[in-house]
Design a binder for these strands. Structure first.
Length: 921
RNA sequence: GCCGAAGUGGCGGAACAGGCAGACGCGCACGACUCAAAAUCGUGUUCCCUCGGGAGUGUGGGUUCGAUUCCCACCUUCGGCACCA
């Protein structure tokens, strides 16, 4: 065997050995404690990038660490394989989504194996595999049966040009990213899941150890607010229900506002206002994201001509429509109290509507005619009939006496009720796409909806499909798929929408338990042992959607009794199932994002014809950043490209965004590409740049592995940044871990000649035990960078001991073997190789984690800090076990002290055991 | 605008139940080895300085014998939400 450290030789060798021995097969064993470590499954986009490594390597090291500590660890991997990019590849490059996806999966499997992770590949699950999506469909049917799935109206991004629905990520600045054509908001009938039914339970995080920021984001996302529903009546006699968090301001309601899409708008609109109302509604439907985001946007609306009666005082108030009232929140209608709500106040001032204060703060009285802003603070109720004088506090919801009292009173009188509203909306799961799990629904000729019987699942996605450039789902014109029969054998139409891919990833942690099981989504025997997931690792970008959906899914599964059998088995083995199936993952840790090496964005120089805030460019050059100042002149624009669609770019011209549209025949100059350039080349160039800027794709893990070996790459990823923060990739730093492994390679095989220096042996043992303690605590706490730093300290101590000699055989072996064991989770191959070369039993990954002894780790000497008025003036080496009085005496005897004390007696002496003495004069 | 996280050497980052600021690593400088370079090894590396010291953890205050750590105000960056009635 060669003496040179050659990762290219030893890494594949051990990977094959481990595979052959089934070293990482995780099997149910009730005699041992279980640990289910889960890391977010990747989307098979083509190549594993360094971000995947940054997420998965430390997760793997942590799983290995838990395994060495005696747990039976399950650490599975799979692919979230449905989704839009596959379909885009089909349209753009004429590759079938299935072909594209499975080719990518194959490539990524190979890359994942090169990582040397302890994935149990026999538990791999792939969500686009019929054996998987059969159960995704099966879940849909269960949801439908229990009234948790329903058809409702939902807003979609609709392209008039393409006559198709676009996903949010396909829409940039209110335009289709591919064609640059405008996109409108349109109501369509879609499938929803009733996640709102679980809103209250989802707000309860007591059973789980999740990071505060995630809990907070979910809490805000759910957005619970307490208030009342109040029924107003239109003059035509129709009830108009509103939700308000401030029922105590009912007497101050001077007008009502309906969302433009509200059902009653047509009915309350008077003939003379109809034209204005219709025009406003049409304009609201066109409102694009860019308009809604505009900060200077003023409130707009129109009067309907109709009036409503306020149920508490019989006041006749005008009904308006305005797009600041959202059809999707509350009842889509509000009572407007301009005196005490800033939005209503702005609207009232804009259109000259009445402002009547009904809460009086202490001090100067409010006057509706002269108020400059709505008053939202505490006070007492006024102009509110029997409630006059009721105190109003700053508390929200029923905890505020005025809100509670009025809400109760409304309920008694029958014109309202206490109500709790949520910002959270039901989960829209329909996607007008091909590459997703089919929804197993059939529409009978009479319009009735049926589920495909379980025995006939899965509804298979047809392979023989034709992709049209419009992006329309091929299922919509695939006759074989479309035409089916209902339960009575009559012709019926199949649902052509497929499911949101979040549906697939909401239950994959259960499929991993038994990916080939065919009598249910998972095997209860496996579930009883492994569930719940003990630690889930992944990016914080999934804080709300995915993590909320999977919690919801688990709660539904529990309520449908899908865990009952697993709970029974769990009890049989003496483990209490109470609460084990309320949450999918009891622990959660987020890693940060790793970015490409930092670089400036592209700056363009565009000449053309300017019309208002848009320039139609006849000539575009990509220029070196910094060569020309950003700015805007008559026919010239210089600035960094911030966003782009097909041929429309948003350019930063010095703090402001300006639109540049590239004319079809424009002259393009991209210095990085030789010869005459076309719009397509410009687009391609910008795409590549943008990707490398935001996703770090410039860093290719395969090349790094080829150059340094997976062990070094793993160690560097764990060392180079804080795991929960990430940061820009830096090539230089990898030399640190590279040298570490080189040193370990030599230390592990060193022919050591032992000595008999007891003090040196004791010192090396002390360091060894200190490092074991530090690495154990850091791995426990996901502080991977400091764990690797501690391992480097042990390496330094061993090298120093080797240089100086004298350490006895036992201390040397303890240090070297501890070094290998501590490094094993980080760099599994080199440690396995050295462990074997030292003649120790296979496998290092089946050894127990080293234990430290606090007595051995204890320092004998400390450097006592002597301070005068908090400033360090001297350091004295003393024994670590001196008493306070002894420390004080040692400090006061310091001869360096006299020049600082200046003859004055100390006023106070503070002794901190084992650390310092501070003398106050 | 609201909510959250974070600001420490040239760089990544240590240290926060208040107690030596800068662990560990990168880079850099000098030295050794070499004809030379790379690699390797050794020494040094917060800044200023009149070599006594002085200043220093985003800024300004405060509490304390003592503050990177606690409190108040502000600035910057990054994430989330964004007319939520």
């Amino acid at each position: 065997m060669s003496d040179v450290y050659d990762p290219a030789a030893i890494e594949p060798k051990w990977q094959e050995q481990w595979e052959a021995d089934g070293l990482y097969r995780a099997k149910v064993d009730w005699e041992r404690p279980k640990y289910y470590a889960l890391t977010m499954l990747p989307y098979p986009s083509g190549d594993l990038h360094i971000g995947h490594w940054f997420a998965m390597t430390p997760s793997d090291a942590r799983a290995r660490f838990m395994r060495m500590r005696g747990y039976n660890v399950l650490f599975p991997m799979g692919f979230d394989a449905f989704g839009l990019p596959a379909e885009n590849a089909a349209i753009q490059r004429n590759i079938h989504p299935k072909t594209w996806t499975y080719a990518n999966i194959e490539r990524m499997r190979r890359q994942l194996r090169s990582m040397g992770a302890m994935f149990d590949w026999q538990r791999e699950a792939v969500s686009c595999d019929p054996a998987y999506y059969q159960w995704t469909e099966w879940f849909f049917s269960r949801f439908f049966e229990h009234d948790l799935a329903y058809r409702g109206e939902g807003l979609v991004n609709w392209s008039e040009t393409l006559q198709t629905v676009l996903a949010n990520e396909q829409v940039i600045d209110g335009k289709d990213e591919r064609t640059g054509q405008p996109v409108i908001q349109k109501m369509m009938e879609q499938w929803f899941f009733r996640i709102t039914r679980y809103a209250d339970e989802l707000l309860d995080f007591t059973p789980i150890d999740w990071p505060d920021p995630v809990r907070l984001m979910q809490t805000n996302w759910i957005g619970r607010s307490e208030g009342a529903r109040v029924v107003f009546t239109s003059e035509s006699g129709d009830p108009i229900e509103v939700f308000t968090t401030r029922p105590d301001t009912l007497w101050g309601a001077t007008f009502m506002v309906l969302a433009p899409e509200h059902d009653l708008v047509d009915k309350v609109t008077g003939d003379e206002q109809r034209a204005a109302v219709d025009a406003y509604r049409a304009q609201a439907a066109r409102a694009t994201e860019i308009e809604r985001l505009s900060e200077t946007r003023e409130k707009t609306g129109v009067f309907t001509g109709g009036y409503a009666i306020n149920p508490v005082n019989g006041a006749r108030i005008p009904i308006w429509i305005a797009d600041y009232v959202l059809s999707t929140y509350g009842t889509g209608a509000i009572m407007a109290v301009p005196a005490h709500d800033q939005r209503d106040f702005d609207f009232a001032r804009q259109y000259g509507l009445d402002i009547v204060p009904v809460i009086q703060p202490e001090g100067e009285p409010l006057d509706g005619a002269t108020m400059a802003a709505a008053y939202v603070g505490p006070g007492v109720m006024v102009n509110s009939a029997l409630f006059d004088g009721t105190p109003v506090t700053a508390a929200k919801g029923f905890a505020n006496p005025s809100i509670g009292a009025v809400a109760d009173w409304l309920a008694e009188r029958g014109c309202g009720a206490k109500s709790i509203n949520y910002r959270l909306r039901d989960w829209l799961i329909s996607r007008q796409r091909y590459w997703g799990a089919p929804i197993p629904a059939v529409f009978a000729a009479d319009g009735a909806i049926e589920m495909v019987p379980d025995a006939q699942l899965p509804v298979l996605l047809p392979d023989d499909v034709e992709f049209r450039p419009t992006g329309q789902s091929p299922l919509r014109y695939h006759d074989g798929f479309l035409n089916t029969t209902d339960a009575d054998g009559r012709p019926a139409r199949r649902e052509t929408d497929t499911m949101d891919t979040f549906m697939c990833s909401s239950w994959y942690q259960y499929r991993y338990l038994s990916p080939t099981y065919d009598r249910g989504p998972f095997d209860p025997q496996e579930a009883a042992y492994w569930l719940p997931v003990d630690v889930y690792t992944g990016g914080q970008e999934h804080a709300t959607m995915h993590l909320l959906y999977t919690r919801f899914f688990t709660k539904v599964m529990r309520d449908l009794g899908l865990f009952d059998e697993a709970a029974r088995i769990m009890s049989e083995h003496g483990r209490d199932p109470a609460g084990q199936f309320d949450e999918p993952m009891t622990g959660l840790r987020n890693q940060g994002q790793i970015l490409g090496a930092e670089r400036k964005g592209d700056v363009i120089l565009a000449y053309g014809r300017r019309e208002g805030n848009k320039l139609t460019a006849a000539r575009v050059e990509v220029i070196e950043p910094g060569t020309m100042p950003p700015g805007l002149r008559d026919d010239v624009v210089v600035g960094e490209i911030m966003r782009r669609t097909e041929n429309v770019m948003q350019v930063d011209v010095g703090g402001e965004l300006f639109t540049v549209e590239v004319a079809p025949n424009a002259v393009i100059s991209v210095p990085a590409i030789e010869g005459d350039n076309t719009v397509n080349q410009l687009r391609h160039h910008l795409d590549v740049q943008r990707m490398s800027k935001s996703k770090g794709n410039v860093v290719n893990p395969d090349e790094l592995v080829a150059q340094f070996g997976a062990d070094t790459v793993r160690a560097y990823l764990m060392f180079f940044a804080k795991w929960d923060q990430g940061g820009p990739w830096n090539y230089e730093g990898i030399k640190g871990p590279q040298r570490l492994l080189q040193d370990v390679w030599e230390i592990g095989q060193a022919q050591y000649t032992p000595g008999e220096d007891a003090a040196a042996s004791r010192a090396l043992r002390r360091k060894t035990h200190q490092v074991i303690r530090k690495v154990t605590q850091d791995m426990e706490a996901f502080s991977f960078n400091t764990a690797v730093a501690a391992i480097m300290e042990l390496r330094n101590a061993i090298l120093a001991a080797q240089r100086e000699g004298g350490v006895d055989r036992a201390a040397w072996n303890e240090a070297v073997e501890s070094l290998l064991l501590l490094l094993a989770p980080v760099s599994p191959h080199i440690t396995e190789e050295l462990w074997a070369r030292r003649g120790l039993p296979y496998s290092i990954h089946e050894q127990l984690w080293p234990q430290w002894d606090d007595d051995v780790a204890r320092e004998e000497q400390i450097s006592l800090i002597v301070q005068v008025n908090g400033k360090t003036r001297d350091r004295i080496e003393v024994a670590a076990d001196l008493t306070d009085d002894e420390l004080r005496a040692v400090a006061l005897s310091s001869d360096k002290l006299s020049r600082w004390l200046d003859g004055k007696p100390p006023r106070q002496v503070i002794v901190v055991r084992g650390k310092l003495v501070n003398i106050v004069v």
